[in-house]
Design a protein around this nucleic acid. Structure first.
Lengths: 222, 222, 222, 222
DNA sequence: CATGAATGAGTTTTCATTCAT
DNA sequence: CATGAATGAAAACTCATTCAT
C-alpha cells in the first residue's frame, strides 16, 4: 500500500527546509539535516523532490505564495492609493515579524549563486525571467495604480508610473528585509535606534514612511 | 629565491576571488578554482590569506573601500543637499556599471550564512556590529545633512532625520543592486523597461529618482 | 535500506585502524587508507566515528580493554604475591605474542604528540589524567599487594610499596614492549640473544625475571 | 664566497629540531617551522640535511651522543658495581631534568612509525640494527660488569648476566622516561605521589631504586 | 514502497620539497 | 651560494545522492 506523506509531514519538511535555506543559503544548507530535523528519511525527500534545487524551489514557491497572499489581501481591501499603501506597510510589518523566514528566503534568491529556480510560470506571458514570475504582479499593479492616481490628479503629474512604482517597491522590499534579515535589521537599528525594529515603534516607522512616500508621490506642485 | 607575487598577481587573485565570491557566495565559491583561475597555486592563497574566510574578508574590504571612496568623493564635492544627492546617484550609476562585482559582493554579506567578517574597526566607537562598520559613516552623514536641511528649512519640518536618512539610503542601496545584481536588474527592467539599466537611460532614471526623493524630502507643506 | 555494517565489518575497521595507528602513530596513519583497507568508504568512518581522534580513541580503548582483561584474569586467579607475578608474566608473554598490536598501540599513546584521548573515566575519582585512567587500577593493586606482603613479612620491611610497585610495573611494561614493539624487541635480542623473544625461551626469561623480582622484593635482610 | 653556517647556527637548528621532533614526533614536526624558529631558511636546511629524515637522524644522533656521554662519564668514574649504578641513577636524574628533550627524542625513535634512521655504525660489527647501534655499548658493558660481579661473588650466582643486564637497563630506561616524558611522568606521580618527580625527592627515589636493584642482584642466597 | 546506511567525489587545508632570483 | 616564496600532492572531512533491504 502506498503510504504517501501526510500533509502535516510535508508541511514540516518545507517548514524545516525553509528555515535552513533561509538561514544558511542554498549552498550552506544540508539535505540530510533537513530530513532528520523533519522526521523523515532522505529517501522520501528524493522521492518527493528531484534534488536539492527542487526542494529549494518548492520552499521558495511557498514563501512567495505567502508574500503574495499578504499582497493580495491588501489589494483586496481596496481603498485609496494612500490607504492601500498604509495597509501594505502595516501588513508587511506584521508578516515580517510573524514569518521572517519567508522574507529571508526571498532575500536568498536575490543573491547570485542561488540555483536557477525551476518555477512554472502561471501565465507564460513574458520573458520567463525569475524576477518576472515573482515580481510581475506587483510591478503591474503598482504601475497601474500610479497611472490611475496620476490621471485622477491624486499624485503629481510629472511622475513616471514605472519608475515611481519601482522606487516604491524598493522601499517595501527594504522594509521587509529590515524586519526579517539580520544584516538589514542591524542597519535599521543603526539608522533609527536600537528599538527601531520593536513592535511598539511600528506605528511611528509606518508614519514616517507614509510621509516619505506621500511626499514623493504628491510632490510639491500637485 | 622565487619572486614574490607581483602587485599585479595579488590584484589578480583578489579580482578573481571577488568575482567568485560575488557570483557564488561564500559557501559556493571554491578556493582551488580561485587559485587556478588566478594563475597561482593553492599554497599561495594560504600563504597570503589565513583561510577562506580571511580571503573573503580581504575581498569585502577592498569592495567596501571602493564603495566608500565613491561616497567620500561625492561628499567632498559638496553642494546643496539636492546637489549632493544627484551627484551621489550619478556616481553610483557609474560605479555600479564599472565595478558591479563590488556591489554584488557587498550584497553577499547582507545574506544570512555569510561568514563573520574579521574586520578591524577604524574607530571603535560603537557596538562593533558589522553593519555599523560598513554603514556607520553614511548613516551619520545622512542624518546630519537632513537635520541641517531641516533646520534651514530646505526640507520639510515634520520629517524624522533618522528615518528619512534610512529610507533614502534604502533607495540608494536598491539602486546599486539594480545596476549590479542580476536579480535586481531583471526586476528593474521588469518595472522600467528592458533598457532601464542601459547607460543611455541613466539620466532619465536619475531624474525620476531625484523627483521622488525631492518630493519625499520637501513634502507638500514646506 | 542498505545493510548497516555487520559486527564483522566494524571489527575489521577497528582491527585495521589499530594496526595502522600502532604501526604509524596517530599523525602517520591515514584515514582514507584505513577505510580502503577495511573495505568500506571514508564516509562510513565518519558516520561511526566523529573524526580521526575519535577513531583513535576507540582503538585505544579496545586495546586497553584487552590489556585490562589480561590483568584482571590474572588477578582473579589469585595466589601468593609471587604466584600472581609469575602468572602475570606468563600471561603477558602470551598476550603480547598473540596481540602485539594492542601493546604497540598502548605504546603509541605514551608518546608526546599523541592526541588527547576522549576517554570516559569509569570512576571519576581523581585528577582525570590519561595515565590515571589507564594505569590507576594496576597502580592501586600493586601497591596494596606489596603493602600486605610487607605486613605479612613476605617481602622486605624496608621497601616503599609505592616505589617498588612502580619499579615492578616498569619491568612489566618493558616486558610487554620487548615482545610487541620492534625497537624493544631488537633491543631484547641484543641483550639476551637472537632467540630471546622466541616462544621456546619464554620459560627461561620468565624464570630469570622472577628471580630478579623476587630478589628485589625479598632483599637480603628479610 | 662560501658562507657556511656558523657552529652556533647549526646548534640552534638542531636544538630547535630536537625540541620539535621530541614534542610532536617525526610525522607531527614541521620543517618550515623548525627553519623559521631556528632563524635560517628552509633552503639551507635542505642544503645541510638531505630531507626531513636526514635532519631527524642528526637530531637523534646528537641526543644519543649526550646520553652516551652521561653513560661514559659514569663508567669512567669507576667504583664497585653498586657505586656505578648509584652514580648512573644520579646522573640520569640530573640529565633527564636538564635535557628532557634528548630523552623524549630517544623515546620517539622507539615508536613504530619513526623513520628508518640513516645512522652510520661506528663499529660495523653486528647485525646493523638500530637498537644495536644505540644500545650496543651499554648492553655489552652491563653484561660484562654483571659477569665480573658474579665471578667475584658480588652478586648472586644464579643470575643470567644477559637477562639481568636487560632488566636493569629496562629500569634505567623507564626512569629516564619518568623524568622526561609527559605520560611516564604522570604515571610516575600516580604511583609515587604528586611530588615524585620533584628534585627534592630524587635522593629518596634513588634510594628505593638502589634497594630494589641491590636486592635483585644480590638475591637471598649469595 | 520507504528507509537511511553507504558511497565517493569534491572541498578545504597543510607542508615537504623545489628552484628562480 | 642562500633565500624563502611557490608548488602541488596528500590528507581530513562533508554531504548530495543512490540503492539494497
Amino acid at each position: 500500500m502506498l503510504k504517501p506523506l501526510t500533509q502535516e509531514q510535508i508541511e514540516r519538511i518545507i517548514e524545516t527546509a525553509i528555515r535552513h535555506f533561509a538561514d544558511r543559503g542554498f549552498a550552506g544548507a544540508n539535505i540530510n539535516k533537513i530530513a532528520t530535523e523533519s522526521g523523515v528519511s532522505v529517501g522520501v525527500l528524493y522521492k518527493y523532490y528531484q534534488d536539492k534545487t527542487g526542494l529549494f524551489t518548492v520552499c521558495v514557491q511557498q514563501s512567495l505564495d505567502y508574500l503574495d497572499a499578504v499582497f493580495r489581501e491588501t489589494q483586496a481591501a481596496g481603498g485609496t492609493l494612500m490607504e492601500m499603501i498604509e495597509n501594505l506597510i502595516r501588513r508587511s510589518q506584521q508578516a515580517a515579524r510573524e514569518h521572517p523566514e519567508y522574507f529571508r528566503l526571498y532575500h536568498q534568491i536575490t543573491v547570485s549563486g542561488a540555483p536557477v529556480l525551476r518555477m512554472e510560470a502561471e501565465h507564460v506571458d513574458g520573458s520567463g525571467s525569475v524576477a518576472e514570475l515573482i515580481e510581475g504582479r506587483s510591478a503591474g499593479l503598482y504601475r497601474q495604480l500610479l497611472q490611475e492616481a496620476k490621471d485622477s490628479g491624486e499624485v503629481r503629474g510629472d511622475l513616471d508610473p514605472a519608475a515611481f512604482a519601482f522606487f516604491f517597491d524598493n522601499l517595501m522590499m527594504m522594509l521587509h528585509f529590515a524586519y526579517a534579515c539580520d544584516y538589514y535589521q542591524e542597519r535599521f537599528r543603526l539608522y533609527c535606534g536600537e528599538d527601531a525594529a520593536d513592535e511598539k515603534k511600528d506605528e511611528e516607522v509606518r508614519g514616517q514612511l507614509m510621509r516619505f512616500i506621500e511626499g514623493a508621490f504628491r510632490g510639491e506642485n500637485r
